[in-house]
Amino acid sequence: MPTDDSLQQVWQWLVPPVVEDSQGQLIPRRRARMPSVQSPPQADLDFEENTSQAQDLQAEVAIHLMAQPGLLLAHPQASHDVQLQGRHVAYLLRRSARRSIGFSVSSHGLDVTAPRWVGMTEIEAALQTKSSWIVRKLQEAGQRQQIKEEARIHWGEGGTLDYLGQPMRLCLTGGEDQPVRTRQTHREQGADGAQHLHLPLPSGAPPVQVRAAVQAWILREARTHFTARMLHFAPQMGVRWNALRLSSANTRWGSASSAGIIRLNWRLMQHTPFIIDYVVVHELAHLHHMDHSAQFWAVVAQVLPGWKSLRQTLRDRPLPSWE
């Protein structure tokens, strides 16, 4: 997919967990021909932020449903329902000109897309055929949503968020009566490893102001950290990059272009340095191979032999909503 720079070769390697062309699935450049009843490949990575009021409400419903035995994540716009493996599933049915029945599971629930000429009997039969996969994916989606909600960041005094994989406490230490050292955003780390981010804001600052100040600081830190790691790995990998750009994309950790432009999501700074290194190496490896071929992964393995466990950790650890 071309970037904003109209570059011809860009690999988008992170999408949230859904089927086909929705958000949430590692999508190869060339898709295999789909069978009449389609199951997606296993979702690789998860990075999804709910920002609208409707999405927030849906997340609350998801948590409520997951807490009740026998109930699964219900689509907020559900048009049909079905019993799958003894579980009630409310789903949204869409009609299209496609020639096969497709399923998509995301944080919203189950979407079913079917040809206009296919009757409900055939659709329900297809649902039963894939019931095991559907139920499992709905459970996983609900659990991911619950984890995000439980980790929601409090944008105020005493709030915490991860920085380089470790909790960091927010301290609003601004005001004219505070020492000079607190009048600029800075991080302090104690001998025990505890991190504190001092923000030059009054204790009653509104959450939106606190969040903006934290984001501005992390953006600066991200550029410095990413640049250092790219300078470290590029010579080892025999590649040359031309520009680093910070990304705020909701569905990608990074991308690389054949022109040597690397984009990395600044929210990677909430992950551990090992995870950041994996993403950096992943994107630099695309300067050798603009695909996910065996040759591509061989390049990654030369620098990070344990890349599989790092990728799995990135898959399993969703970040809380930045809201």
Rank of each mutant, 00 (worst) to 15 (best):
L84P: 06
F296N: 06
P40D: 13
L264K: 09
L170V: 14
R220F: 07
I275K: 04
Q42H: 10
R152N: 04
N265Y: 04
R31H: 15
G142E: 07
N250Q: 13
G190S: 13
P320G: 12
A294P: 03
L319K: 01
F296P: 07
H271K: 13
R181Y: 03
P273E: 06
Q184D: 04
L138Q: 09
D277I: 12
Q312P: 03
A90G: 05
A90K: 14
V180F: 05
H225A: 08
D192L: 04
L84C: 11
V105R: 06
S52K: 11
Q58H: 12
G159T: 03
E60D: 12
H154R: 11
P16S: 14
S321T: 09
H198D: 02
R263P: 01
E20Y: 08
H154A: 11
G254Q: 04
L310E: 01
H75R: 05
P17M: 12
L172Q: 01
F274W: 07
V300Q: 08
G119K: 13
T113S: 12
M230P: 09
G158L: 02
G24W: 02
A249K: 07
A205W: 00
T185K: 01
V280A: 04
Q312D: 12
Q302W: 04
F103K: 02
N265D: 07
Q68F: 00
H225K: 09
Q178G: 01
A249P: 08
H186R: 13
A97Q: 14
W155S: 08
P202Q: 00
A243N: 09
A97N: 14
D316H: 03
R263K: 08
Q9V: 02
N242Y: 03
H88R: 13
N50W: 01
I134V: 15
A78Q: 05
G260V: 02
E124C: 02
R317H: 14
V299C: 06
L201D: 01
S293H: 04
Q236M: 12
Q23V: 06
H75G: 05
N265T: 02
V279H: 05
L310T: 05
D81I: 00
P179G: 02
G174K: 01
W241F: 15
L138G: 10
Y91R: 08
L310M: 09
L264W: 04
V303I: 15
L319C: 10
P115F: 10
W217F: 14
W13R: 13
G142V: 02
Y278W: 07
W155E: 06
D4I: 06
A213Q: 10
I27V: 15
Q139C: 09
E20R: 10
H288K: 13
L219I: 07
K308H: 13
E124F: 10
Q8D: 12
M230S: 06
L14I: 10
R99Y: 06
G159C: 03
L231S: 06
F233C: 07
V18S: 15
P16G: 12
S257M: 01
G175N: 00
L93Y: 07
A114N: 08
L57Y: 05
A228F: 08
E283Q: 11
V82K: 03
F233A: 10
T185A: 15
V239S: 03
Q145Y: 00
Y278E: 03
H196P: 00
